[in-house]
Design a protein around this nucleic acid. Structure first.
Lengths: 229, 229
DNA sequence: GCTTGATCGATACAGTGTATCGATGTTGGC
DNA sequence: GCCAACATCGATACACTGTATCGATCAAGC
């Protein structure tokens, strides 16, 4: 064959160079589209036209990939506002919104040390914004809001999945879990809970989130007021 | 061979009858001794002298086994006390203690709907104990405390594991993560966080937990006082 | 006593994370 | 310019996972 007739190089001549960022983005795409369990090193590698072992040049282990995914989400969390109260509200809100955008975030949050650059940057921003508050209050206050958000986000995502697993809306969910709950409530074993469910407030997710956050912030406010009258 | 010389039946003549409870106990033993990841259906079955598929007569799926494990832990959580504040403190404390006894609990808590009999019984007991509080406040208050505890417990167990992974005590941990943190702090990228770590309060786990819980309870108390002056 | 039916668990399958190590490409020495 | 030594990379392999399948096994009914 004549050299000048050499066929075109294949469509993907040189495999696109990999990077931690590309790997993390591919993993997040997989997790967003499905579940965290859908993220396997093989699938991530396949999405990048690479063999599984290729990834190990960039990440040491699958857990490290998860850590990087979590830190990437922290980059999306940018609390802002005037005054400590608004900043903490914003911290809670933006974290919650990020978890709603990336449901798998709820599975990882709080489960690994958060020492990535973006997580630290977010903590730094919040700490700076609370500059007016004495550190003895600010530090536990931030920790408390963080913990509360972790718990709320997990519960919310869990409930959302349960609803989605049975049908699509809340009506369907009640139809599926209803019989079981009806039966167990009918035993009369949980009388207080039954009346609370029947007569108590029927708050939606946003309202419940706000109510708990208000408790927390009111408690913090009381302490601040106590210290600087 | 003569029939009356028939050898003794094997040491385990009849395989011990299985039950959900025995299976769950075996799984919890495995998880307590190691990690949740150490719980595989094969190992659980082996601990009960059974083949893996034998378990499927009692549980439908591995997730269901996890749900049962979580509910078994809920049976250990028995909040008590006089007055709504003490009951909520007890709810938080006993939940936290259960998580410290079963570290894997932190991996599952909040991650699945908690509709098992013991979880419902615990919720019923708490709801009943808050009988004196108007339902519009009691329901979100319980939810908030629950969420807060979930977040705290996850953070605590995560930190404990990180410490244990590097050595055995906090000194070792600082020696290992120290250089990385020192380097990142030395960049000056997180000035507010750096001063907070340097000058802020050095609370231990118990104190941080108490501080956040106090914020929450003070906020709840304020609302109760506002409603019934 | 034989057939039929149900039950149970050994085998098999598709998938996982990652250790190993030979093929490959690159560089240094002469 | 050529070859050898070295480093790098990723295909193969391994041990393990949850669980579907379905043939062997045992009990019931006539």
């Amino acid at each position: 064959m004549l050299v000048w007739e050499r066929p075109e190089p294949p469509d993907r001549p040189v495999p696109a160079p990999l990077s931690r960022e590309r790997i993390v983005r591919a993993a997040i795409r997989l997790a967003d589209a499905d579940t965290l369990e859908a993220v396997s090193l093989r699938k991530v590698a396949a999405a990048l036209d690479a063999g599984p072992m290729r990834l190990y040049g960039y990440i040491a282990t699958k857990d490290e990939l998860f850590d990087l995914m979590v830190d990437a989400v922290h980059a999306e969390i940018r609390p802002s506002g005037d005054g400590w109260r608004q900043v903490l509200i914003s911290l809670a809100d933006t974290t919650r919104q990020a978890a709603h955008r990336h449901e798998w975030f709820a599975d990882l949050i709080g489960g690994r040390p958060q020492l990535g650059p973006h997580a630290l940057a977010r903590m730094d921003a919040v700490t700076a914004a609370l500059g007016g508050v004495d550190l003895g209050t600010a530090v536990p206050a931030i920790a408390a809001v963080d913990a509360y958000v972790v718990g709320v986000v997990r519960r919310e995502i869990t409930e959302r999945r349960a609803e989605r697993a049975t049908g699509m809306d809340k009506r369907q969910w009640q139809l599926t879990y209803g019989p079981y709950l009806q039966r167990t409530f009918a035993t009369g074993r949980y009388p207080a809970l039954a009346t609370a469910v029947r007569d108590g407030p029927h708050l939606d997710a946003d309202q419940t989130f706000q109510a708990g956050l208000d408790f927390l912030l009111d408690g913090i406010e009381a302490r601040i007021a106590r210290l600087s009258p």
